[in-house]
Amino acid sequence: MGKNIELMKNILITGGAGFIGSNLALKLIEKGYNITILDNLSPQIHGNDPERTSPLYNSIKDKVNFIKGTVTSRGDWEKALEGQNVIVHLAAETGTGQSMYCIEKYTEVNIQGTAIMLDILANTNNGTVEKIVIASSRSIYGEGKYKHPELGAVYPTHRNEKEMLDGDFEVKYNGVDVELMATDEESKIHPSSVYGITKQNQEQMIMTVCPTIGIAPVAFRYQNVYGPGQSLSNPYTGILSIFSTQIRNGNGIKIFEDGKETRDFVYIDDVVNATILGIEKEEANGEVFNVGTGVPTDVLTVANTLINSYEIKVPITVTGNFRLGDIRHNFADLSKINSKLGFKPIVYFEEGIKRFSEWVLQQEIQEDKLNDSLEEMKKKGLYK
């Protein structure tokens, strides 16, 4: 691996016009890297006229070598890979709920897209690529790690649908209540959604194939990433966006389950900083890291914090409805990324929400499409 960052100037970011990708690109440009982006400007993320109206795309378009294309096209990959030293592979279909019925699409983009890249690198004399950073996900852990009163650390499987219909949403192991623990990288991998399965597959292909072809792999299992710039119109991802759009439309917030489900919300700047450490540090090579804050925040707290931030009073309804494939809790153990790469999150939830909501208030109010997406899931039998 070339020790000199000068030798690793050319970086390809797939999905680089997206939320994480565009923020990462701007920071890397600031640091003197040459950035190429391969992105298909998906309407679900960028709207129907992205070249004109997507703020994310417009923030990077004149600063990078932009290739409008898709990771499912071998020709687009061949064009994009030429002369690159590092690949940051972010392009993916995202969204747990949607993945449970758009199965072919998620598999084609996430698994097949990654397979094409590796196939090209394994079968052509591409001597320039030294490192691949793959965006993995906390979703691969499924329900994560819990403490059983007698058995110690356990990894519960899917929750029981009948119990959830009866309003009992907490995680159990063999019928016994268990206590949430931070999920470390050695935790069991057992995703509970098609999205999680595809992220596991991506990660394992990269970590398995790259060392055999002389490329250093690095995987980051991102928790729930948020911040200024995330899509406010996509009803399938991002609870903060969904709630913000509902509040600003004066609509009440409908909360799934009992509102006590938790997530580890990690601010975009921290995600970008962690990813750059993975690009630049040799200590990252061959390793898998969690990226989060290490703090669980429940959904009711998220809703109330946003209502206070926007100073728009809307009713909160805890519905008791739930989506199959959703997990109950998860938060990251950050010991490994801290000791190996020196990463510590800087922006915690309170400060991050403040910055996020200030940005949201400067944006146009988007149409609230949540009910349409829930209707779609209900028809498929996935929303109860």
Rank of each mutant, 00 (worst) to 15 (best):
N110K: 06
S309N: 14
E51K: 14
V272W: 07
E143H: 14
L361S: 15
G320E: 12
T14L: 10
V272C: 09
Y222C: 00
G229H: 10
L90W: 03
K336E: 04
E367P: 01
P235D: 00
I215H: 05
K344R: 13
P211N: 04
I29W: 04
N234K: 11
I5S: 11
H148M: 11
V209Q: 09
E351L: 13
G294F: 07
D49V: 11
S231T: 15
E375R: 14
N201G: 10
M205E: 06
G342Q: 08
G69Y: 01
L374Q: 09
K147D: 10
S192F: 12
I189P: 02
K27H: 07
N160R: 10
D177K: 14
I255Y: 00
E358K: 12
I242F: 00
Q246G: 06
V218Q: 09
S241Y: 04
I312R: 03
N40W: 02
S42C: 01
H148I: 14
E287L: 09
T124Y: 13
S59C: 13
V299H: 03
K354E: 15
K254H: 10
V194S: 00
A182V: 03
I239C: 09
L180E: 08
P55G: 03
E261T: 10
N160D: 15
Y155V: 14
L90R: 02
